[in-house]
């Protein structure tokens, strides 16, 4: 790859290979996630169980726990990666990510407030309350960012504003935590590590609807997204309604990441690292190529991270953010160190 760089030629191709590899990785990862766990189910047995055989317990584990979890991981992992891609294209900045705009902080604040003031302290990480609170918090923050975007001329300023909003939310959360009882905030701590556990089919359905809708919209916006590669000034001169698309892109990205945050809590680094890696791999930034690639790669990343989270120190489950950070942060560092001229 470095050789190509210096020659200046953009060698592409091998898209088929990359996509095939990603697809294969998704399938293998899905299989592994379904098969492995504290109770191992051999791959061959999976099919048997699905068709009606196997023990009651195994069927329960498979259909009520493993499969929904695996589906959610795929959906949410993909959603996060695409969310990150949208923001990176838009800001023209490779370290832009859904959490940079303070969305996760807003969600966390909302969840914290909900746990402390509304719920009684039940441990239900997928409780409707928490989901709604996280969604609400994320969207309120998004709303604030959108309002700001109308008044701000350059996207770089918006990025800074988002970071500030994040800080404010974090500070308020910390403030609340200071005066809370341990029993209440234990849930919060667990939740803020991010986890894919405790998903049921209802969650899967809801997430699938939201993610599908957002993905369809994203695909429909492929043209303007591509135009933004040349910068806002040129995009406007080519006929893109820049103000409108600013809002649309932020909304789409936020919808996707809010969805993830609502169901799985804040999952970090997927949004930053995956799009960056895909861009480098595919040497293209065109939406029709990048969007599916990011989705698949995000799914892969999360599937394997979730596997590690579950298996590494079984039966203790690590928070997913822990794993993704450990895997993802080095990537970000590498990326910062090896930036092109």
């Amino acid at each position: 790859m470095t050789k190509d760089r210096t020659e200046g030629q953009l060698h592409r191709g091998g898209y088929a290979a990359v996509f095939a590899a990603l697809a294969a990785a998704v399938v293998v990862g899905a299989l592994l996630c379904t098969a492995l766990g504290s109770v191992s189910i051999a791959p061959e047995k999976i099919v048997e169980i699905l068709l009606g055989g196997g023990s009651e317990a195994e069927r329960n584990i498979l259909t009520q726990i493993r499969l929904p979890r695996m589906c959610m991981t795929v959906l949410l992992g993909g959603a996060l990666a695409v969310s990150g891609y949208l923001l990176q294209t838009f800001f023209g900045n490779p370290i832009a990510g859904p959490y940079v705009l303070g969305i996760s902080s807003g969600a966390k604040l909302a969840v914290c407030a909900a746990l402390l003031f509304v719920a009684g302290g039940e441990r239900q990480s997928s409780g409707l309350l928490m989901i709604l609170a996280a969604f609400g918090g994320a969207l309120v923050t998004t709303g604030a960012i959108v309002l700001l975007s109308h008044r701000v001329r350059h996207m770089a300023s918006l990025l800074a504003a988002g970071i500030m909003v994040g800080y404010i939310c974090n500070a308020v959360t910390d403030f609340l935590v200071t005066f809370a009882e341990d029993a209440q905030i234990v849930n919060l701590r667990g939740w803020s590590q991010g986890t894919f556990s405790g998903m049921d089919w209802g969650d899967v359905a809801a997430a699938a609807m939201i993610v599908t809708a957002a993905m369809v919209l994203t695909v429909l916006c492929s043209k303007p997204i591509g135009a933004f590669e040349l910068g806002e000034a040129y995009a406007a001169s080519m006929g893109v309604d820049v103000k409108r698309y600013r809002v649309i892109l932020i909304l789409l990205s936020s919808l996707l990441s809010a969805c993830v945050t609502a169901f799985a809590g804040p999952v970090s680094f997927v949004g930053i690292a995956v799009p960056f890696l895909m861009r480098k791999l595919l040497r293209s930034s065109r939406p029709p190529v990048m969007v599916p690639a990011c989705f698949l790669a995000g799914a892969v990343f999360c599937l394997y991270s979730d596997l590690i989270a579950r298996m590494a120190f079984a039966p203790t489950e690590l928070g997913i953010s822990t794993v993704t950070s450990l895997l993802g942060a080095p990537v970000v560092i590498y990326m910062l160190a090896v930036r092109k001229r």
Binding site: L10, G92, E229, L230, G231, A233, Y234, S237, R279, L282, R283, S284, S285
Partner: peptide, 13 residues
């Protein structure tokens, strides 16, 4: 159609 003075940095185009 315009040609501007701004520097643009499209990724991988």
């Amino acid at each position: 159609a315009v040609v501007l003075t701004e520097h643009i940095r499209p990724e991988y185009m």
